[in-house]
Amino acid sequence: MAYFVTVGTIGAITAILCLGVNISWGWAGQIDLAYYAYVAIGAYGAMVLELPKAHPTATTPSSYVLGLHWPFLPSLVGATAFGGAAALIVGAIALRRLRGDYIAIITACAALMLTSVLSQDDRLVGGYIGIYGLTQPLNSVLKLGPTGYSYFYLGLCLVALLLVYLVLERIYRSPFGRSLRAVRENDLAAAAFGRNLYSLRLRAYALGGAVGAFGGALFANYLLAWSPTAWNILEVVLLMSGVMVGGRANSRGVIIGSVIVLSIIPEVTRLFPLLTSNSTIGPSAAVIIGASGIIVMLRFRPGGILKERKVVDHSQTASLNATSPTLTVAERSNG
């Protein structure tokens, strides 16, 4: 049972991370390879806000900035803000003049630079050693045992996932989401109808960074430690494959894709060594099955499991305000 709780907790956090990637990639149409850097910023950010001041000793050599000893929830908010701010800075450079592939290149550069800086300079967030020593959030109040706490944290992550889902659905259907999708569909026409492309793209990018950092903060509070080995640029590609299989720009699809590609496939293939004499077959099989699945999806259902949904207007007449406006989202039927 504890196994399923672990898989569920990490699965919920991963789904949040996929929803964040989906903002810049699915809604705005940009490939953001720096995304995992915002996840890391969120993770480190939450830790340096929650932990007390660093006192490096021989047994605990880790040193880090801040150390404000904030409670869990304010730290979560702070970490989310860090991620959004970092994305705002990178986005301000990457999105001003560049398009498409060049945005991917610049964001990859930003992520690699950040990895180098954070892993080399051990005064910032502990360098290669990383940061550890976080206590289970809220458990000083709850006083749960190990099993009870794991259930609690699973519930917390699921609630967080639901919250992120609801917030993003609302933004997707709002005038902001509509403008953003118009920019993705045809940016020149959107500019000709008064949309500030740079501002819309940048706001979406910062929102994505904030969601990533939120997920990262939850992750760090689950692992209670974070180090450069926990993140690299390839993680973004994995998250994107989850988004692609589930359905770009469809939040429900993204969650399904995340669960299939990043939870079910790796966990099922973990059992493979039991069937053969090869003890290392698990991770390789996960990659082979996952990659084959993506190729099959691209061939037979390029839009993903659930395609982008259409915002449908349900009012009966165009005249007067007799009907209250009810805008809902319906599944794209085919094509």
């Binding site: 509509r178 999708r181 118009a182 569909e185 045809n186 020149l188 026409a189 959107a190 000709a192 982008e308 259409k310 915002v311 449908v312 207007d313």
Partner: peptide, 9 residues
Amino acid sequence: KEWPLLSVL
């Protein structure tokens, strides 16, 4: 230059 994946409305 319509926005293809947006509804007509």
